[in-house]
Design a protein around this nucleic acid. Structure first.
Lengths: 206, 206
DNA sequence: TCTATTCTGAAATGATTGATTCAGAATTGG
DNA sequence: CCAATTCTGAATCAATCATTTCAGAATAGA
């Protein structure tokens, strides 16, 4: 017997009906709902409506609400990790990779009306699930590593001053960036964000 | 007749039983629960347990869950506003008022395990109540005004450079500050926060 | 086609949600 | 003490919550 849980039963005799829905697409839809409403603000009905599946199908394949949330956060952070890998592949100078990243961060803050799912999740603290904490920390560490490495390279190239450590500047940028989301949630003023980004770039380059 | 709602009935003949619980203390207790669990994560039973009152008393005096939440946010932002007024009264130099404020901000980030209620509320976006949005924006504007005014005074005194506008620096500080809460939620590393604060002070003073 | 197995959809689960009811306790002025 | 009024507490409300059940549809290999 290889039965671990219902969905892992593997018959040695016959196979049967296949799952009708696309799990990845369904998780993507669920992620959007959690993103907009938060964990506690999202009901299972909200989820199954968006995913267009029955709750029994959800529980048979993915699991309960918390399990689904973990998959959503995993998907979200995976997308972000892939974006960083793409940026690292760029042939451009470290400085221009960095400024492009900062400028894109501004754009995302302004476009994404619900803010950042990782930040929202960190602040909501709805569940103390170790997997979620780990995913959020990993996501943060990825960004930290990307920024500090890129700054270090730009310093080595002599494009930005090495008065401060790349690690401190990376921590600092991540902090400002988080604040931009809050600023935009409260004021809806793109100019504020753009000016702060300009200031940050000026501070580290000069 | 002066009847607006049940609790505003004023008899012209006789008075009657008084409210037994202290409303301000009860709201304070409720605030702590909302602070720890968020709006959607807090049930009415969580609230009445902490406030040590019956739900009928709550509805007869304060109102429903949303009304109570408004009062909690009002109390929270009022406490913060009073703190700023105290700081403004100080006879110390603008620069030392500013650095004291920044150092105290670091302490609060590190001490307050649940982060900042205003920031949490902004990110949760649980209710689109105009009063809450207004209170949060007001709180933000208060801090903005205090910081930019203090920076302007320090500039006038020649204690910090006037390369940048006080308004930009105020926006910038508020953003970093918000990020510190997230950083501390994820990493629980006081040194990170302290270093960032030192860096910020250094940047604006030199 | 048949049989074994799995997936789906509707219905229902008990628990909890925010909110209300109302009898009786409390307090006031008379 | 009485009468008028208001507040409190226990019980309860319908609605919704996350989750489960199960009959029947679907599909694989034999």
């Amino acid at each position: 017997m290889f039965q671990i849980s219902a969905r892992f039963v593997v018959s040695e005799i016959t196979m049967a009906r296949n799952v009708e829905f696309n799990e990845e697409e369904a998780v993507q839809k669920a992620m959007e709902v959690f993103w907009a409403k938060g964990y506690n603000g999202t009901s299972l009905r909200d989820l199954t409506d968006a995913m267009k599946i029955n709750s029994s199908s959800l529980y048979n394949t993915i699991g309960d609400k918390q399990e689904l949330f973990v998959k959503c956060i995993a998907l979200y952070t995976e997308i972000r990790a892939k974006d960083l890998i793409q940026r690292e592949k760029s042939k451009a100078s470290a400085l221009s990779i960095l400024t492009k990243y900062i400028e894109d961060s501004v754009k995302i803050v302004i476009i994404e009306k619900n803010g950042c799912l990782a930040i929202k999740t960190a602040f909501e603290g709805a569940t103390d699930d170790a997997r979620i904490k780990s995913l959020i920390k990993n996501d943060n560490d990825n960004n930290y590593k990307f920024i500090s490495d890129t700054i270090a390279k730009a310093m080595a190239a002599g494009d930005i001053s090495d008065d401060e450590s790349p690690e401190l500047l990376a921590d600092f940028f991540i902090s400002v960036w988080t604040g931009w989301y809050e600023s935009y949630l409260i004021h809806r003023d793109p100019v504020k964000i753009k000016k702060m980004a300009q200031y940050f770039i000026k501070q580290i380059t000069k």
